[in-house]
Amino acid sequence: MINTVYRLVSPKLFEEIYDEAEDLENNVVVRPTYLSICQADQRYYNGSRDPETLAEKLPMALIHEGIGEVVSDNTGTFRVGELVVIIPNTPMEKDEVISENYLESSKFRASGFDGFMQDYIISNPERLVKLPNNINKEVASFTELISVSVHSITRFSKISHNRKDKIGIWGDGNLGYITSLLLKIFFPESKIIIFGKNEEKLNIFTFADETFKINEVPQDLRVDHAFECVGGRGSQLAVDQIIDLINPEGTISLLGVSEYSVPINTRMILEKGLFLFGTSRSGRKDFIKTIGLFEKYPKILKYLENIVNDVVEINSLNDINLAFEKDFNSDFGKTVLVWKK
């Protein structure tokens, strides 16, 4: 079976590569249908990663957020035509202590090997999870990102103390929106407070109890726990403000990815006895839990429709470039690719 793979060979330049698909007997063939662009994809596309990383990773097919339809399955796990979400994390081993997304031996699509920009995805059935037939496919395309928030909140639930009167979320972007929405579902009795820079973005957080611009926070405001969803150069300011406003023995979840080293005020972390933990990627159990939330709380999908910003039909390589340029110039929301290649 010949498969066409659409690889980024250098910043902003894609090429079609024809590849012989192997081991179809033990895998499932999935036709991608809806894909979503992530900030990590943008860093490769625009060449904003360091030259050594680009030289090591490229050429490579981008995109690790996506869903598709089963074309064939010789394993007997799925029926032809079923809609599935594709798990990009691919563990090479099992560990009794370390989750699959933190094992150094695990591989991740669009970061070391080809992502979903292909005519067909050849996947182990364990890396696929069936989706409800009536799900909003545009929202389902970024299930992976949602599962990262679910993973972080699940870990937070295990290690944080019971006082959760006020939970603060720093970041008014996509990750902040998703994480705060899910926190409202997981902890309905807690007051969910959003801290951001952009008034228009903050107005979209209609489910939140309160929103504040980071330079207009009341002097006496305190939170019991916090989630940092800023990333980039803004991480330091966010973490500094969190440490200032969080109550003693609070838990801080770090989700924002930064290419830079971020100084942290360890003196106040020690003085307040704070817990800090990082979250990266997710695993199969997080995807299953996420889809379960979709089914149990349909209103999640309705809220998530608000962050579908652009929907671009992909019929050519030029369409791919157009989608990435639109996404880059967007301040908020997800860019979804309707994959017609």
Rank of each mutant, 00 (worst) to 15 (best):
Met1Asp: 09
Val5Phe: 00
Val5Tyr: 03
Ser10Cys: 08
Ser10Met: 11
Glu15Leu: 07
Ile17Trp: 06
Ile17Thr: 05
Thr33Trp: 08
Gln42Met: 11
Arg43Thr: 09
Ser48Tyr: 07
Arg49His: 13
Asp50Arg: 13
Glu52Ala: 13
Thr53Met: 05
Ala55Asn: 15
Glu56Pro: 02
Lys57Pro: 03
His64Asp: 04
His64Asn: 06
Val70Asp: 02
Asp73Asn: 03
Gly76Asp: 11
Leu83Trp: 01
Asn89Leu: 11
Thr90His: 11
Thr90Tyr: 12
Glu96Phe: 13
Tyr102Thr: 00
Ser106Pro: 09
Phe116Cys: 00
Ser123Met: 03
Glu126Gly: 08
Arg127His: 14
Leu131Met: 15
Glu138Val: 08
Thr143Pro: 07
Leu145Gly: 14
Val150Ile: 08
Ile159Val: 15
His161Lys: 15
Gly168Met: 12
Trp170Arg: 12
Gly171Gln: 04
Gly176Val: 04
Thr179Arg: 09
Leu183Gly: 00
Phe187Thr: 07
Lys191Gln: 15
Ile192Lys: 09
Ile194Asn: 03
Phe195Asn: 12
Glu200Leu: 14
Leu202Asp: 00
Asn203Leu: 11
Ile204His: 10
Phe207Thr: 08
Glu210Phe: 05
Phe212Gln: 08
Glu216Lys: 15
Val217Leu: 05
Asp220Thr: 08
Gly232Pro: 00
Arg233Val: 06
Ala238Arg: 01
Ile243Tyr: 02
Ile252Gln: 01
Ile252Phe: 04
Tyr260Met: 13
Ser261Asn: 12
Pro263Met: 07
Thr266Gly: 08
Arg267Glu: 14
Glu271Cys: 08
Lys272Asp: 07
Arg281Thr: 04
Arg281Tyr: 04
Ser282Glu: 09
Arg284Thr: 05
Lys289Tyr: 01
Thr290Ala: 05
Gly292Ser: 13
Leu293Phe: 08
Leu293Asp: 03
Leu293Met: 09
Ile300Lys: 01
Lys302Ala: 10
Asn306Arg: 15
Asn309Glu: 12
Val312Thr: 12
Val312Tyr: 04
Glu313Asn: 11
Ile314Phe: 07
Asn321Cys: 03
Asn321Val: 03
Phe324Met: 07
Lys326Tyr: 01
Asp327Ile: 02
Asn329Asp: 10
Lys334Ile: 05
